[in-house]
Design a protein around this nucleic acid. Structure first.
Lengths: 112, 112
DNA sequence: TACCGATATATACGCGAATACACAACGAAA
DNA sequence: TTTCGTTGTGTATTCGCGTATATATCGGTA
């Protein structure tokens, strides 16, 4: 059984900015309140996750994730309203493409 | 300047079957009439190209590429009507997605 | 039957990416 | 000022994958 898959992401100057990976990470940060926990949950190295957050924050006018270090509980991470808005739009877009693909089964019919 | 990119491909049992790479290769075979020339033109190793053709032929009821070895010119490669049809449908699909993305600029507006 | 150019196939190698690891820095609270 | 768990950062090592290399195979033609 053949299936059509797709992936969409945002680039800036040819470099990947936001895609499925970052999306899942930010989502996980929102749930966990901690970058290290979020990374661990999705089986990503902390370093990779940290680099990713830097990329998001440094290449946007508005920050995506606020990292706090120190304090009684060592610190934590939380996402901004801007991140929430962007995540919603990204999911909307995925949904639209997904709907389009369901209507376009011509390719599948040809492939047997 | 941020841009939305996408990629779509066909999978079977979780394994990639047909996507941008194979598409370009088959197209190149059509133009060159030779697998080695097609691979060389798109800077792909001959082995990779050959493996790719096997995958297409072995996982379809109808063959995509006919490889001929020996003969005055050593052999050659040509694509079947089935491959032509499939390529057309794949390009149609890409076009449809591309049009959809142009209409959906909400995500880009959020990302600054 | 020798030649030629392209297909066919296995094995060896090298490079970059990803990851694992180690440890320093931090700051609020007790 | 000690404790705590997280963020922050560099370094080392492993791993996967593509690629290079080598060689066999094929069959029409001259």
């Amino acid at each position: 059984m053949k299936k059509i898959k797709f992936k969409c992401w945002v680039e800036e100057e040819g470099e990947k900015f936001y895609g499925p990976g970052p999306h899942q990470l930010v989502k996980s940060i929102q749930e966990e309140g901690s970058l290290s926990k979020a990374a661990g949950q999705m089986n990503m190295s902390y370093k990779k996750a940290w680099d990713l957050v830097q990329r998001l924050n440094n290449n946007s006018e508005e920050a995506w994730v606020i990292l706090k270090k120190g304090g009684q509980h060592g610190g934590g991470a939380e996402i901004t309203p801007h991140a929430i808005k962007a995540m919603q739009e990204y999911e909307k877009l995925q949904q639209k493409i997904s709907e389009l693909l369901q209507q376009q089964e011509d390719l599948i019919k040809v492939l047997k």
